[in-house]
Structure formats: C-alpha cells, structure tokens
C-alpha cells in the first residue's frame, strides 16, 4: 500500500478516534448541564454531530476499502505536511510567541523583515525600510486613529 493510500485511510480513522474522545470524555464531562431549562439539552447537538461524524467516517472507510475514492491525482505527495510546511507553521508560532514576549509592534517588525527575506527580497535596505514603514503605518493606523491598545508583551510591560 502506497503512502498516499495510507493517508486516505488515516483521515477517517483519525476522525473515528475524535468521535470516541468526544462521546466518551469531552461531551459527558465538558458540557455543563444545569437544571432549570427545558427542551433539548446542551449535549444533544454535540452527540448528534458526533454520531453523524462517526457514520460519515465509516462510510468513507467503506468506500476506500471498495476502492472507489482511489482517484489518482497526477501529483502524489507522500506525507500530509512536508518539511517547508513545518518551517512555515513553526515560524507562525514563533511570531505569536514574540508578540507575547516582546510586544506586537517589535514582533511584527521582526516578522516582516524575516519573512521578506524568506520570500527572496534580496536587498537588506529594502527589507528594513519597508518593514519599518509598514510597522509605522500600522501603529499610526491602529493605535492613533483607531485607539486600539496593542499588546506590549511581557518585555514592554516590564520596561514602561
């Protein structure tokens, strides 16, 4: 069985796992039901949805076994995410962490500069001028015009 086929099977199997977690743990212990209301319980829809999801996942599995959905794409990628995808995803969380630590404005300046380099903007001075200009415009727009208080981050709070 090729990588591709494995992936197609993995989705419904994973969904069935999610359904089991929902029905067995999440819905019974994380949906509050308090007396004093009538009609359907807050758990009704989560249960119905879980059941529907389980049914659909099973149908998907069945159709895979019958070989129906084995529609061959010309482009066959083996893993769901490849190395560059992980880099991109990690960089996003790095950006978020930077916002929390050093504040939104400096973090965004750094993110802009770093991403521009990754996007093959070669000249350093263009990168820096553009990133600085964009950051300045955003600060003026959000903080001054729209009076949004941008997060200062842990560092910002400690400094001033």
């Amino acid at each position: 069985m090729s990588f591709r086929r494995t992936r197609e099977f993995a989705v419904p199997v994973a969904l069935l796992g999610v359904c089991a977690i929902l029905a067995g743990w999440l819905i019974p212990s994380h949906v509050t039901v308090v007396g004093g209301g009538n009609g359907l319980s807050p758990r009704f829809f989560p249960y119905v949805l879980t059941a529907a999801l389980a049914l659909l996942a099973t149908m998907q599995l069945a159709s895979l076994f019958r070989g129906e959905a084995g529609e061959e794409d010309s482009e066959v990628r083996s893993p769901v995410l490849e190395a560059p995808d992980y880099v991109a995803a990690l960089s996003l969380f790095a950006y978020f962490a930077a916002i929390v630590v050093i504040g939104m404005v400096p973090a965004s300046f750094l993110a802009l500069a770093a991403y521009m380099r990754c996007f093959r903007v070669k000249s350093w001075w263009k990168v820096l001028v553009y990133a600085a200009a964009v950051t300045a415009v955003l600060v003026v727009f959000f903080q001054v015009a729209a009076s949004v208080q941008l997060p200062r981050g842990m560092l910002g709070r400690a400094l001033w």
């Binding site: 991403y115 521009m116 996007f119 903007v121 955003l138």
Partner: peptide
Amino acid sequence: PTGYVFPLILVL
C-alpha cells in the same frame, strides 16, 4: 513580488 505583499498581509 509576493515578498512585499504576503508578509504585509500576515501582519495586517
């Protein structure tokens, strides 16, 4: 070039 556009969109 996307280098000027997409980083800006993300930050926005």
